[in-house]
Design a protein around this nucleic acid. Structure first.
Lengths: 236, 236
DNA sequence: TAGGATTTAATTGTCGACAATTAAGTCCTA
DNA sequence: TAGGACTTAATTGTCGACAATTAAATCCTA
């Protein structure tokens, strides 16, 4: 099982209150696009739908706002954020900065056990049927697992909160809604492998550089894909 | 007047609702230490104090939580974050990563007008009585003004939100509560000057490196100060 | 007296209703 | 018919009360 589920909730504590559960439900609904990006949120309607009061719903909405998944204007209401190319590129800029630093810190702060775990994970991915057969599993779950592990390995609570608690929900949302299943799997796997090696060598400087290149490469891949889509649209 | 006030509210819109006003009031109270760091927050008590209902107070608390100024546990309550040395260093790590990147992006994206404004601001600081007389003004307001301008200059909404909307409240809180009036003003001023030059030259790579060093130097300065305090404590 | 179970008090979570603001629809006028 | 003022409907913000959970105090027992 992947570690993704456990990280939906930044505090790592189970959803005990009803607002928590509604937050979880809406989080997945928005990320998966079941609640459309850019759409307006009607408090009375959703409250009825989830069979809760508006107060409880608003509590959930506040947490979604913390993840930057919805935006609120006073006396007007909430909207789901819309997925724009500019927004996606902005996120990648932040990821490059933060995950690069997280990777440096991980090289400094991860325990030997944690590093061993990560190597084991990579080995498992290498042997997994998914990677051999197709590309999709590794590209989605496996890639996220790797990045989460590095972030957690930084042992920096601020980094962990910002990346896992906020930014990565958006990352997943973009992945799903833009349908990113690019053929970078084997190459990304090699990059992951090199990064882990740098961490294992406790070479923070190199680890940061490699992680930044890894994310920048991913960004460029997206940019190319977008440009490609646009040109084919223009042809048609 | 400094640009700081305008940035308390991430969305840059005035506080129209009562929850907004209470949020503003509590924000300042917490940053200034009038509500003690680490102290528990009693919802009934504060609601009575601000003469509002608990619902409205909780709305304000939610926004404070977004700024990472308070932490909430389900069925237990809220606490103001406590100021620890570890926490401070964690923030500086994040700042180094994000503001370094913001500086790179600023070099790429700032308009010529924006750059001119920033140069004017620096010149004004240089001539200001405050910098000549004492060190405190520049160290506090002037330094923050500079950093805000660079961050805004990145034109990256994610960076702006995270840094101005969240992290910098904590930065200010630590500055005040740890009483940081270090004699780095003239040197910091020189560093700012060099950074602006790099931005003016549109040299993003250099701009990022200089900003990272600038922040790292500030962090080391704090670390020394802390170590110094500890050793003098041990003597006594 | 110390430790633990039970009762009590206080705090947080949730609810439905009213007030204030905004958006939509209607009517009037040029 | 187009534009704007007015009226109406819907949505958001705020309030006080009740339910559920947690923390404190009390009592009992070994």
């Amino acid at each position: 099982m992947s570690t993704i589920m456990a990280l939906d909730n930044p505090t790592l504590q189970k959803a005990v209150t009803t607002a928590d559960k509604v937050f979880d439900a809406m989080l997945h609904a928005i990320v998966d696009g079941k609640i459309a990006a850019g759409s307006k949120i009607s408090e009375p309607e959703l409250a009825k739908q989830y069979e809760i009061s508006r107060s409880t719903l608003r509590e959930a909405l506040n947490r979604l706002e913390k993840c930057h998944l919805i935006e609120r204007k006073a006396n007007v209401g909430s909207r789901v954020v819309d997925c724009t190319i500019e927004g996606l590129l902005e996120i990648y800029v932040v990821r490059e900065a933060l995950e690069g630093m997280a990777c440096r810190e991980a090289a400094n702060n991860m325990s030997d056990e944690e590093i061993a775990e990560m190597q084991a994970m990579l080995a498992q991915h290498a042997n997994s049927q998914a990677l051999k057969d197709g590309v999709s599993y590794y590209q989605e779950e496996g890639d996220l697992d790797f990045h989460y592990k590095v972030i957690l390995g930084s042992h920096n609570q601020q980094l962990i909160n910002i990346l896992c608690g906020q930014l990565y929900h958006l990352v997943r949302m973009y992945r799903i809604q833009f349908g990113m299943h690019s053929p970078r799997a084997t190459r990304a796997f090699q990059e992951h492998s090199n990064i882990i090696q740098a961490i294992c060598d406790r070479d923070g400087e190199l680890a940061e550089i490699l992680m930044r290149r890894h994310i920048a490469a991913s960004r460029k891949n997206i940019e190319n894909k977008i440009a490609q889509q646009n040109s084919s649209q223009n042809k048609a």
